[in-house]
Design a protein around this nucleic acid. Structure first.
Lengths: 251, 251
DNA sequence: CACTTGAGTGAACGCCGTTAACGTGAACAC
DNA sequence: GTGTTCACGTTAACGGCGTTCACTCAAGTG
């Protein structure tokens, strides 16, 4: 059971995180200061050392929190599409990834930008930490492949060196004997890199030199990736599952 | 002509940049401090205000310097391959991009990571700044297409909304009447995003969850992109043009 | 020569992270 | 009920930071 002390402590931790996030939004990463957080909370800075060993520690905790947040955002988006529409689920998760990044640029930067100098991601969550999101996409891809058997690169078509690394990755994930072809993992890696590139470029503002609105490019690339996974034309984004179902029925 | 004062000033500016870069390498972005720079130079911090209006200003100058550096690295790599081997030139530039990122992680972070809060890229260099690198790749792709006429998406196959944005981009670059199909620009955008994704993910350490060495994936994706541009099998990297020519002749 | 001007200094202000020594009150053991 | 513990919070202080201001001083200019 949870004692009263523990509840108070939990509440304080959350209040610290909220104040820290407010500063993050206002000043970007690097603009987070223990003294300002304490000031916002009506406390003094040294008190925060009862909760975090250092500013770096707080920053690390923030990163982990945002990772979890992205994870639930992706899962929520995925689960908002009927379980039999795997292509729709994949698209929904990908769009949710982009949406979260655009809605939370500094948080996205902390999670998916360059990590702070001494940062080591936690490994305890069961899923490999940064790859956890990738894991969501991979699980969908694997399920889709098992149902549709869309074509994937043959083992011989994967360069030998890459094949070795992919095998090692599959083994470390326990995918050894899941009956999934190596080409599927190869395809996943390519898609994940493309998705990351699209979203990171846009979130970091590196796409403005060619497009002031990157959404059409995102949608086009998403459609291309979907096609390479044997998924038919995607519904346009921004429709709730019931809405898109209605639209489907109406057309 | 350049007066003596100007030469001294120039030398000091360069010394500041070198000290700043040393700190960048040692402590990462965010670990750059005017006082430490001045200390390294045997000066006091306020003296630096004769050269830069603020720390942010110095940081901005560093970013621009590294952008230029990447640009010449790409051009050098490109020009180390015979001008008629456009596929080889593209591959060389792409590999140089990755190589530079891996050899200069904090510099890469400053240029291609999230920009500091108030940062606006300069526009004076003739080419749009961040896109200047993309411009190197695009010029090669355009030349290759004019020579080989490899297949590109037809205008009708580009979603209408994206088509509009690509047209706007082409117009703003003066590519209106260059006779290049819109599909080529579409292809370029996709390739540039993939290249960015590959390199940024690796430089920021976000590939380690699946691969401890990302080079095979990079090479495989590079080969895929080359194939989509009608380029035949690529020579393995790490060969000087003469060496690869010799190897070619020997095989 | 006198005079301007640009480079550099020292002191100071208000931030910052972090540490140490010190209260204080609630939880707990007897 | 009383004594003890201990987590939570305080103040004071150290050194480092960006930045400003008043100042010196030597190099360049007429």
């Amino acid at each position: 059971m949870t004692t009263r002390r523990e509840r108070l402590r939990e509440a304080t931790v959350r209040e610290i995180q909220e104040a820290a996030r407010q500063q993050l939004r206002a000043n970007g990463p690097g603009g987070i200061s223990l003294r300002a957080i304490a000031r916002d909370m009506g406390m003094t800075a040294p008190a925060l050392y009862r909760y975090y060993a250092s500013l770096d520690d707080l920053v690390r905790a923030m990163i982990e929190e945002y990772k979890d947040e992205i994870g639930v955002a992706l899962e929520t988006a995925r689960d908002s599409v009927p379980a039999d529409d795997l292509g729709g689920r994949l698209a929904a998760a990908a769009r949710a990834f982009r949406r979260w990044a655009l809605d939370h640029p500094p948080e996205f930067t902390m999670v998916f930008g360059a990590p702070p100098p001494g940062y080591e991601p936690r490994e305890d969550g069961g899923v490999p930490s940064t790859g956890g999101f990738g894991g969501i996409f991979f699980a969908l891809m694997a399920e889709l492949w098992q149902r549709e058997r869309f074509p994937v690169p043959a083992d011989e078509d994967i360069p030998a060196e890459l094949r070795g690394h992919l095998q090692h990755f599959a083994a470390s994930c326990g995918l050894d004997r899941a009956g999934l072809p190596l080409g599927l993992i190869r395809l996943f890696a390519g898609c994940w890199v493309r998705l990351y590139g699209l979203v990171a470029m846009e979130a970091f503002g590196h796409v403005h030199f060619m497009l002031d609105d990157a959404e059409p490019l995102f949608e086009a690339e998403l459609a291309d990736m979907a096609a390479s996974l044997g998924i038919g034309p995607l519904l346009p984004p921004g429709h709730s599952p019931s809405a898109s179902a209605a639209q489907n029925a109406a057309s």
